[in-house]
Amino acid sequence: MAAAASSSSAAEERRGIPAAAFVEDVETYLRQSGLDVNACLSLLQERLQQYKIVEMKLLAQQRDLQAKIPDIHKCLDIVAALQSKKTLITDYEVSEGIYSRARIEATDSVCLWLGANVMLQYSRQEAFALLQKNLENAKASLQVLLADLQFLRDQETITQVTIARVYNWDVHQRRIKQPINES
């Protein structure tokens, strides 16, 4: 059994997500880590649960970003419409299920809702540039998040394979030690 205990992953961690080590030789891995089979399995299960918690958080962030991008597109469309037309007639929601019609005269400024009860007034050009930058940032964040999720899923798979390898090794060792009953 001259194989190494584990091969190092291409990346040790990605944005705080630790990389899982693929265990090639279970016996050497257990000896080097100083763990027995049960402690090793417990440790791997705990790591797998940690990965699942991080995955849930990342999926929530992904849903938020995927909802935010269409909203930014809508705002960009509205600012573009304001820039191209002198007068705009639109329907807007007054309260849930109640709409009203408004006539918006040409204006040089736009108010953007920034969240946390904050609204700021910008020129149309500034508003368009800000929204464009927000859209680019949201798309870039989504790409990074998707890469993080892929990395995380790879680590979950490696951990699950390692758990199976340790368990199977343990079963094999027990069979070897078990006396053969000849009838």
Rank of each mutant, 00 (worst) to 15 (best):
V79P: 02
V79Q: 00
A80W: 03
A80Q: 06
A81V: 09
A81R: 09
Q83P: 02
Q83L: 09
S84Q: 07
K85S: 14
K85W: 07
K85M: 09
K86P: 11
K86A: 13
K86C: 04
K86R: 12
K86G: 14
T87Y: 09
I89C: 10
I89A: 06
D91E: 11
Y92H: 07
Y92S: 03
Y92N: 06
Y92D: 01
E93R: 06
E93L: 14
V94W: 01
V94E: 13
V94P: 01
S95R: 05
S95V: 12
S95W: 13
E96R: 10
G97E: 02
I98Q: 08
Y99K: 00
S100A: 12
S100Q: 08
S100K: 01
R101C: 10
R101F: 04
A102E: 05
A102L: 14
A102S: 06
R103Y: 09
R103K: 11
I104W: 08
I104N: 00
I104A: 05
E105M: 02
E105V: 01
T107R: 15
T107W: 04
T107S: 15
D108S: 06
D108Q: 09
D108E: 15
S109F: 00
V110C: 02
C111V: 09
C111H: 12
C111K: 06
W113N: 14
L114W: 02
L114K: 14
G115L: 11
G115A: 03
G115E: 04
A116Q: 11
N117K: 13
V118N: 13
V118A: 14
M119N: 09
M119E: 15
M119Y: 07
L120A: 13
L120Y: 10
Q121C: 08
Q121G: 05
Y122I: 01
Y122W: 03
S123F: 01
S123V: 00
R124T: 00
R124G: 00
Q125G: 05
Q125T: 04
Q125P: 03
Q125Y: 05
E126T: 03
F128N: 13
F128L: 13
A129K: 14
L130K: 05
L130C: 08
L130N: 12
L130D: 13
L131C: 07
Q132K: 15
K133G: 08
N134F: 08
N134D: 11
L135W: 05
L135A: 12
E136G: 07
E136A: 12
N137E: 15
N137I: 09
A138F: 01
A138M: 02
A138P: 01
K139W: 05
K139Y: 06
S141I: 07
L142A: 07
V144S: 15
L145E: 12
L145R: 07
L146M: 12
A147T: 12
L149R: 05
L149M: 15
L149Q: 09
Q150Y: 10
Q150F: 11
Q150R: 02
F151D: 10
R153N: 14
D154C: 02
D154S: 01
Q155F: 14
E156F: 00
E156I: 00
E156M: 02
T157V: 12
T157W: 13
T157H: 06
I158A: 05
I158G: 04
T159F: 00
T159A: 05
T159R: 01
Q160V: 08
V161I: 03
V161N: 11
V161H: 08
V161G: 03
T162A: 09
T162V: 15
I163F: 00
I163S: 07
I163A: 02
